[in-house]
Nucleic acid binder design. Sequence first.
DNA 1: TAATGTGAATCGTTTCACAGCG
DNA 2: CGCTGTGAAACGATTCACATTA
Lengths: 222, 222
Amino acid sequence: MRRNAQINVPHPSLTRLLAIYRLLEQMEHENVKSVSSSELGRVLGFKADSIRKDVSYLGEVGNFGGGYEVLKLKEHIGTNLGLDRKRKACVVGLGRLGTAILNYDDLGENGFLVVAGFDSSINKLETITTSVELFPAHEISEVVKKKGIEIGVIAVPSKAAQETADRLIDGGIRGIINFSPTALKPKNNVMIRNLDLVGECMILSTLLSFEEGADRNETASG
Amino acid sequence: MRRNAQINVPHPSLTRLLAIYRLLEQMEHENVKSVSSSELGRVLGFKADSIRKDVSYLGEVGNFGGGYEVLKLKEHIGTNLGLDRKRKACVVGLGRLGTAILNYDDLGENGFLVVAGFDSSINKLETITTSVELFPAHEISEVVKKKGIEIGVIAVPSKAAQETADRLIDGGIRGIINFSPTALKPKNNVMIRNLDLVGECMILSTLLSFEEGADRNETASG
DNA sequence: TAATGTGAATCGTTTCACAGCG
DNA sequence: CGCTGTGAAACGATTCACATTA
């Protein structure tokens, strides 16, 4: 029992389910007892239809006519998506961004334990004050292996990103969060998520350009 | 002429085109003269087919039989996606993350000028050393309006995220990059991109759980 | 021959519409 | 009657297959 979803949940649904999950956490905190798909949709900006379908991928859980029980739905999603599972993480690159992440409490509160930080500069390792154990970068794969770290956060300069990824993968990392603007080559089964500020700015910029183009068109033809 | 793409470029294509663009920048730097769709695909982890279709949304530009000229393709994409356009940005929330962003050179190098930083703590405004002009948070909408800032980066604690977004939107911001884990309510035409570390960790964790589930299944049935 | 550009087929996701249930 | 859960239709993106051209 309590088996995880082998169910095929579409990726976009997964993203929405996680958003729903976190909203439910918040509602639980605020002592809200029940909620409907349309209410969830209104707050999160999704369609109610979509939410019902997303939720239903994980099996039935709602009350016909009476919406969802907040606590029950939260547990339901959490169990099915394996969010009850704690995972170890590490941060590579201890510049401003990296140290910010090292000390980011939200990670721990959500079951992600940062158990190691790495940097190539010994100097930095000695001057940073943190409760997380720090290591020189050349020990990455060794430490990842020894500690059973599953998630690696890359916060190094662009040039060092691929090498960092390689070391993490050597150590048996299973997922990477990449803050550098470098596109990492997919390798083994390692999952990669890119959190690239400049890239996101470019996407925004492009969408804005399109909007401007559309406006011009409407104005011209209107 | 030189009109921006009113063309309907699918969102996923857009993301890939931007990745291609940045790779081309790098290749230009390395004096590579020409490149084929399959080479681009190999490096970026996309299928060659896909890349050709993406590029062709913007019109013909390649040489039949001889691939793409690096410089020409780069310019082609850049012009069509409006990447030649410079845009002003601001950062709200000057904790570790916010100050990291304030001083992140890559933004400027890619045409995104950070022209203001905001924080609710006057103390912080006085102690941070940066070349960017700093303001108290209550002046957000005023400064955004006055300076014509188009992109706002939110790096405040979760609780303050929605209020920050509201102020930015009041000032006429056009796009928001949200580093906080709060789902911002869509409003007006403002585009929102979420860069949420905890959320991404959860996505990874879920994908890993699924993988584990699949493994168990294979092992059990194999 | 080698690679692009593109209609057509396929695949996956979202939306719709409504049956089913409290 | 209100809201969930879900097949079916509609939509959008990817992949395929090939005609096209230096």
